[in-house]
Every structure is written in structure tokens, then in C-alpha cells.
Amino acid sequence: MKLRSFLIGMATGLAAAIIIKETAERVAPFIPANQVLNSVKSEFKKEAPIDGSWIYMKTEDFHNGVTTIPVYKGGISRVINGEMESFEFAADARSGVIVDLKRI
């Protein structure tokens, strides 16, 4: 009886997870890539003027060690004290939040 209850509980949990995931994808579609780029640019402009920026319009999967999320990858370049700084970023495609930032 205990094994049966355990299996029923696991099946119910798995079904609920799949339903929640599918519903979340329908309810929270991706933010347009240019909107994400404008948001990132506005944050960088608070520190210094921007020379250039780019973003890939297609999402990619980003794995942070715990979970995998769809992200837009892009970059920003600017000049500070006569030196060029370049950054690459990955921003969550659903919320626009930067999940990875690297100076290159």
C-alpha cells in the first residue's frame, strides 16, 4: 500500500509540473529582444555613454548549474577614460533580467 501511494504521489507531482510549465509558457511569452536590449542599454547609460550594442533575436538555452532558461545574448561597448570596455550579457527572455554578464 505504501509503494502504491508513493507512485501515485510521484505521478501526480510530475503531471502537475508538466501542466504548470506548459501554462507558464503560454501565459508568459518572451519579451521582444529589442526591448530587452533597450533595458540593458539604459542601465549601462547610467555609468557612461554607449558606443555600440547588439543582441541576437533568437533565444538560446542558458544553464546556470541548477536550471535551464531561455535567454537573449547580446553585448555592449563603451569608452571610459580613453579605454574601450566590452561586455557580453545573457538576459532572461521572459523577464529581461540579466542572468550573466562578462567583460571581454
Rank of each mutant, 00 (worst) to 15 (best):
M1K: 02
K2N: 09
K2Y: 10
R4M: 09
S5N: 12
S5M: 05
S5C: 05
F6I: 13
L7R: 12
L7S: 05
I8L: 15
I8S: 07
A11L: 14
T12D: 00
T12L: 09
T12S: 09
T12Q: 01
L14S: 14
L14G: 14
A17R: 07
I20C: 02
K21A: 13
E22S: 12
E22Y: 11
A24V: 09
A24H: 05
E25G: 14
R26N: 10
R26S: 12
R26E: 12
P29E: 01
P29M: 02
F30D: 06
I31E: 12
P32Q: 06
A33E: 14
A33D: 13
N34W: 13
N34M: 15
Q35F: 12
L37Y: 10
N38S: 15
N38C: 08
S39V: 06
S42Q: 13
S42H: 13
E43N: 13
F44Q: 08
K45L: 15
K45G: 11
K46D: 09
K46F: 09
I50D: 10
S53Q: 13
S53M: 09
K58Q: 15
H63M: 04
H63D: 13
H63C: 04
V66P: 00
I69K: 03
I69P: 01
P70A: 07
P70F: 03
V71P: 00
Y72T: 07
K73P: 01
K73C: 02
G74Q: 00
G75I: 01
G75D: 02
R78G: 03
I80P: 07
I80E: 14
N81Y: 08
G82I: 09
G82M: 08
M84Q: 08
E85N: 08
S86N: 14
F87E: 12
F87V: 07
E88S: 09
F89A: 07
F89L: 07
A90D: 06
A91D: 02
A93H: 05
R94D: 02
I98N: 04
I98H: 05
V99M: 12
V99S: 01
D100C: 02
L101S: 00
R103H: 13
R103C: 03
I104R: 10
